[in-house]
Design a protein around this nucleic acid. Structure first.
Lengths: 196, 196
DNA sequence: TGTACATCAGTGAACGCGCGTTCACTGATGTAC
DNA sequence: TGTACATCAGTGAACGCGCGTTCACTGATGTAC
């Protein structure tokens, strides 16, 4: 039903506007001029609706994966890294509010959120790790490096920096400088090349 | 009063045990066998108490700063980077729950939390940036690098990876391997040395 | 085509619980003389 | 030292609001014959 979609959209909007603490079932239905009872026709719970939103987001994270298909083997591939960084930041710009609650609930132990988070991150992590392995094989990264840990560290960096962005912008480090710096670190850490 | 301290401790404990969503004023006072009215003698609000907890944490973050006093100039300084990484992870282990709410509220726009977060991060960020500048001067990092952005990226990586740790541990990447990988990336990004 | 019935999306209004907040209070400790 | 009063930390009990949840319902759309 279209009503289900409208409920999900309203949930997402309110989450973005007021944050996870002020997200109330009653407000969601009020937002689309429906009865609170309507909510229960489609979801058991607010958390249930949040999980559905997380599913939507998961699909859109799939769009990032193709950008990591080819390993970075020469300095010319720097631009590929940059494309990935831009796409990743845009992905967080769009889906940040939903991703943040998902992660938050996952950290608190809600197992359904843990699962979704893993499903979402795992493909990217694997792809980055595979690229690191490629660089190890080529001798650009020492053979005792841990490719999974490297990939995870880079995802963590990208993910968290979206939160710092505003603070940095007000101190004179703009979005372009930030993206460029992130790309250099990412490129160097994954490919073992210098990025110059 | 000792009661104030007990209230703060109870707040911290409940935050760690049940997470920020289930943190209720009534539960806090119940935890120390006090009346809900007692809470209002010391704090105006739950958020007020959270800010006080954040102050406690801020002090303990000062302990990290001395570890970044000397720039890393040779491969021998790798061990200093490792000490910092270990200290940083321990800092998050101990204060994670409080730091997470603080950051969460800051992202939602609560200005007092924004301020606290900045105050807490700024000294570390400055210290890392100064080290990067030192490396630039020595020619180990290209002169067009943005030292603030580099520092911020490294803090973001360290901060966020504490959340991934459990997931990585269950996939065979232990704490030691993780700390080692983080140290390498940090050392290379800040000092421009290889870390080998 | 018309009639009688079934299905189904969505509702209005009510309920009760739990929480934040208040206020007049109590009993203990401190202070003046 | 004793008495009368003041200060102060902490309380018990009550209040009311807002939220989640339920249930019998309505009105529209679909279906059988």
């Amino acid at each position: 039903m279209a009503t289900r979609r409208r409920l999900l959209d309203a949930t997402r909007d309110l989450l973005a506007r007021d944050g996870p603490f002020d997200l109330k079932l009653v407000d969601i239905t009020r937002e689309i001029n429906a009865s609170p009872a309507t909510f229960y026709q489609y979801f058991t719970d607010i958390d249930d609706a949040l999980l559905c939103l997380a599913d939507d987001v998961e699909e859109s994270s799939g769009a990032l994966l193709p950008l990591l298909k080819d390993p970075w083997r020469s300095e010319d591939d720097f631009s590929k890294a940059r494309v990935f960084v831009d796409a990743y930041m845009q992905y967080w710009d769009v889906n940040g509010p939903v991703l943040r609650v998902r992660n938050l609930k996952a950290e608190e132990g809600e197992s359904a959120c843990r699962v979704k988070r893993s499903e979402s991150q795992f493909p990217l992590l694997e792809a980055l790790a595979a690229m690191v392995d490629d660089s190890i094989k080529a001798g650009r990264i020492p053979s005792d490096a841990n490719s999974i840990a490297r990939g995870a560290a880079m995802l963590a960096m990208l993910e968290r920096l979206t939160a710092y962005r505003d603070g940095l912008a007000s101190r004179g480090t703009g979005a372009e400088a930030l993206a460029n710096t992130l790309t250099r670190i990412l490129f160097q850490t994954i490919s073992g090349l210098t990025g110059e």
